[in-house]
Design a protein around this nucleic acid. Structure first.
Length: 890
DNA sequence: GCCAAACCACTTTTT
DNA sequence: GTGGTTTGGC
């Protein structure tokens, strides 16, 4: 018999062909995971599973978009529901909002809103925000929600007064969110889990989704794990894919035990391992394998490849961030000249702030680039203001939105009035918005101007609500907001410079454009009628029950509207259809035409299913749909020029799941990568190492690592140590087997002033005795290692509520020895080559020699050496492959 | 109630 | 260099 799918490996085929029951695909980096998932979905559909019964969940919109696109290509346009955890949960909560105790038009809060709400809860608890910093408290609250702990449960396990106070703040915070009918990101998942625990809801949903796929499973937290479990409780058809070595979201509550214990959680699970890498060259893989081997408590596993070894990794030492940026830019330029596409080149950094310098150098050279996931458009002040008016239009209970714009633009409603309104609202158990109305009409506020201001605010929102119901488009509604509030004039008056003014006005225009694009795709009311608000979908008995909600015109029809030109915002592609973001209009059209015919067999079933619960049907109103989009989809996911070839700049986190021919990782320095803040947590170093692993394994053919010796950090310039990861990557992966340390010591490729003249010696060389040093002057990873050692000796600190089998941490004896050894090597050898006459050196070709003299400056720095076997020679230091000999080698 | 100046903490990563 | 919060003067 002929094997099906001869283009797949045996393991890949096994995963694709697997049918019923739980399946875990342990997919190493570049092992064809996406391919397996999409082929598996296609296979299910081909063998008779209606597309509507399949649900695929990812972490990012980008991943969802790509998967949707590829499935669509493979199946001729099958309409599988692919979405992020958060989008899926948001839809589920719309459908069952009343059961969950929220309005259908609930608000999704962003981080800034959350901080404000936490801050207020802190003050309300009579606690000092200085002693309880809102961001820290918020972090605790979110982690609690990630573990499905409600305030009472958090209080129960509180240790000490501080923890109890946090639990109290959580309680107040949650109450205030609920009163505003608002949810934060963690709520979306937590509340969805609570819903799915109800038999009736679960019945209906599991009837709808018989096959569930979850990508990047190693990054799931407890709530997401429960969601997966509940979704597959009935049919057991859950397929998880992931790689423990790529778990990089511990700080967000992700728990690797989910993937490690998959077989326990889903009895009878089949595990398929994909360990053959089809992406990277042998040397890149060797670098990655060698690095990740330094992590303790991991299953030994090496990625293998049968592909070519490729060229060595490049290490580029630089003087400072400007030189680093310039060198990266010129290398990129050279690649582009050689014909490498912009799209195949990426620059990664650990923290977003590092993009600045690179951006500068790239634009100087005229290299087109794109910063992935940068400053969120929807977070801009002017945009948030307008969105707040929309939020109030959809959900007048949204007190955070009301608070934000009750006096924007200024209309005489100051802090005092706001306080009075809040008190009134809490006394009367009403919204801030209604409180504003009451105070405006009442006698309690003496100042006439203030009363007028309040009434004006109320009037604007009332008007917007009326307009929204009267059938205007969203674009018109946004224009109404701008018009009624006179917002443009407000911007102009308040802008400090004309550039700021035009910036902000431009953002407002962009928002209007976004609204226009939304209108193109959305058919249906912007705002439900009042009575329908309360008649949200009841839990129907599983079988027939078409949803009683009013029948919206199928968005599919609307989709045939022309997508205009390449400049059109591909907004909402993820929500309304299977158009890959960035597609040009024509292929999209074709796919739409082609889809029904080719999947005709299952068409009828699909239509019915989608009336029940689908990505297209679960919005309470158009405004909510738009707001949900702004909350869950970052603006860069849909940037208008995605199709233009550009070099990509992004954080390593944002790079997960992507691949590029050429990858540059900048700022490989201690404190930055590994990041000092990440090391505060016990297992931080290991997660940082996984992050480095992710970065390396994104590269297909070329990997360039850079570091700056000095970097301006917060105002002042700081001397930086090399990242420990540069020492951990096997030297064999570098040219001539020379580690970055060796390379830096003896010569510097193209780095003009990295090699400092001998007379500057001793200014900032390390050379300290590490054991007598004050902690603060040591590399942060070394401090972290020491701390881990101390913790390792003491009682183990409970990390999560659920007792998890404790893995060995990096604090183990052998690991610490390793760190010590490296640390000594570094301090002994010094960072950068510094030569003085009389120094003994070793040259790769010429062997031993003695330095006679140094001549010239910077890039032309020459060194005169008397070799033992080759006589006296003058070499250009920059290209001399040699190193200084240490005392014990003499 | 408004506004400007001083002040401060901050920047790890994201839905 | 930032952005948000607090303070004090008008």
């Amino acid at each position: 018999m002929v094997e099906p799918y001869p283009d797949l490996t045996a393991a890949q085929r096994e995963a694709v062909l697997h049918r019923e029951g739980p399946l875990l695909v342990l997919a190493g980096a570049g092992s064809g995971k996406t391919r397996v998932i999409t082929r598996r979905v296609a296979h299910l559909i081909e063998t008779g599973v209606p597309a509507g019964h399949i649900l695929a969940i990812t972490f990012t919109n980008k991943a969802a978009g790509e998967m949707r696109e590829r499935i669509s290509e493979l199946t001729g346009g099958a309409r599988v529901w692919v979405s992020t955890f958060h989008s899926f949960c948001a839809r589920l909560l719309r459908r069952y909002a009343d059961l969950a105790g929220y309005k259908r038009d609930y608000t999704i809060l962003d981080g800034a809103d959350q901080r404000i709400a936490v801050r207020e809860a802190t003050i309300e608890s009579a606690l000092d925000p200085k002693a309880y910093p809102p961001p820290k408290t918020l972090y605790r609250i979110e982690r609690a929600k990630d573990q499905l702990l409600n305030p009472a449960q958090l209080l129960e396990q509180a240790q000490g007064a501080h923890d109890q106070a946090i639990a109290r703040i959580y309680d107040l915070y949650q109450t205030s969110l609920r009163e505003s009918s608002a949810m934060d990101f963690s709520d979306l998942v937590m509340q969805a889990v609570l819903l799915l625990k109800r038999d009736a809801v679960r019945e209906e949903i599991t009837e709808r989704f018989r096959f569930v796929l979850i990508d990047e499973y190693q990054d799931t937290n407890i709530a997401q794990f429960q969601l997966a479990r509940l979704l597959s409780l009935k049919h057991g058809n859950v397929c998880a894919t992931g790689d423990p070595d790529q778990s990089i979201y511990g700080w967000r509550g992700a728990d690797v035990t989910n993937i490690l214990d998959f077989e326990k959680a889903f009895p009878g699970a089949i595990v398929v391992k994909l360990e053959e890498n089809f992406r990277s060259t042998g040397l890149i893989l060797a670098g990655a394998n060698g690095l990740i081997r330094h992590n303790r408590g991991r299953h030994e596993k090496d990625l293998v490849t049968s592909g070519p070894e490729g060229t060595p990794l490049e290490f580029v030492p630089c003087r400072d961030e400007y030189e680093e940026a310039r060198l990266v830019a010129s290398r990129i330029m050279a690649e582009i000249r050689r014909g490498v596409s912009h799209e195949e080149i990426a620059v990664f950094y650990r923290v977003g702030a590092l993009s600045r310098a690179i951006e500068g150098a790239l634009s100087e050279k005229g290299i087109a680039y794109r910063v992935v996931g940068s400053v969120a458009f929807y977070q801009r002040r002017e945009v948030k203001d307008i969105l707040s008016y929309l939020r109030l239009t959809a959900n007048p209970s949204d007190d955070l939105a009301a608070q934000r714009v009750i006096n924007v633009p200024a209309r005489g409603v100051g802090r005092g009035t706001l306080e009075k309104a809040k008190i009134h609202a809490s006394n009367e158990r009403t919204s801030l918005f209604e409180a504003a109305r009451a105070l405006g009409n009442g006698k309690r506020i003496k100042n006439k101007r203030t009363r007028t201001g309040l009434l004006r605010f109320v009037e604007i929102v009332d008007l917007l609500r009326a307009r929204a119901r009267s059938g205007v488009t969203l674009q018109e509604l946004v224009r109404d907001v701008l018009c009624e509030t006179n917002y443009r004039a407000f911007v102009s008056e308040n802008a400090a410079h004309s550039s700021e003014e035009s910036d902000r006005l431009g953002n407002l225009e962009a928002l209007c454009d976004g609204a226009r694009d939304f209108d193109r795709r959305w058919e249906g009311p912007l705002l439900d009628d009042e009575d329908e608000l309360h008649a949200s979908a009841p839990v129907a008995p599983p079988k027939p029950a078409p949803r009683p909600a009013k029948k919206k015109q199928s968005p599919k029809k609307k989709q045939s509207a022309k997508v205009e030109g390449p400049a059109a915002f591909p907004l909402f592609a993820d929500h309304l259809d299977a158009i890959p973001a960035g597609s040009t209009a024509d292929p999209v059209e074709e796919r739409r035409e082609a889809a029904p015919a080719e999947s005709g067999r299952v068409e009828v079933a699909e239509e019915e299913e989608e009336e029940e619960f689908g990505p297209e049907t679960e919005h309470a109103s158009g405004i909510s749909a738009f707001l949900e989009h702004t909350a869950l989809v970052s603006a860069t996911d849909e940037s208008r020029d995605q199709h233009l070839p550009r070099v990509s700049l992004m954080t390593i986190h944002a790079a997960k799941g992507l691949e590029f021919e050429s990858v540059y990782v900048v700022a490989m320095e201690d404190g930055l990568f590994p990041h000092s803040r990440a090391l505060e947590d016990g297992e931080g170093l290991e997660e940082e190492r996984r992050l480095a692993y992710v970065a390396i394994t994104r590269a297909k053919r070329r990997l360039v690592l850079t570091r700056a010796r000095n970097r301006r950090h917060q105002g002042r310039s700081q001397s930086q140590e090399m990242s420990i990861f540069l020492h951990e990557i096997p030297p064999e992966a570098f040219p001539a087997g020379r580690s970055p340390l060796e390379q830096e010591r003896s010569y510097a490729v193209g780095a003009t002033r990295t090699v400092r003249p001998a007379w500057e010696e001793g200014i900032d060389g390390p050379g300290y005795d590490e054991f007598n040093q004050d902690d603060s002057s040591q590399p942060s990873w070394r401090r972290a290692a020491r701390r881990q050692e101390e913790e390792g000796r003491g009682s183990s600190r409970p990390k999560t509520a659920l007792a998890q089998p404790k893995r060995a941490t990096a604090g183990s004896r052998a690991d610490l020895e390793e760190v010590r050894r490296l640390a000594q090597a570094i301090s002994r050898q010094g960072g950068i080559a510094e030569y003085a006459s009389g120094d003994q050196i070793y040259h790769e070709h010429f062997g031993r020699g003695k330095v006679l003299a140094m001549r010239g400056r910077s890039s032309a720095l020459k060194i005169e050496i008397e070799f033992e076997d080759y006589g006296t020679k003058t070499l250009v230091l920059q290209y001399a492959r040699m190193r200084k000999l240490e005392a014990e080698e003499l």
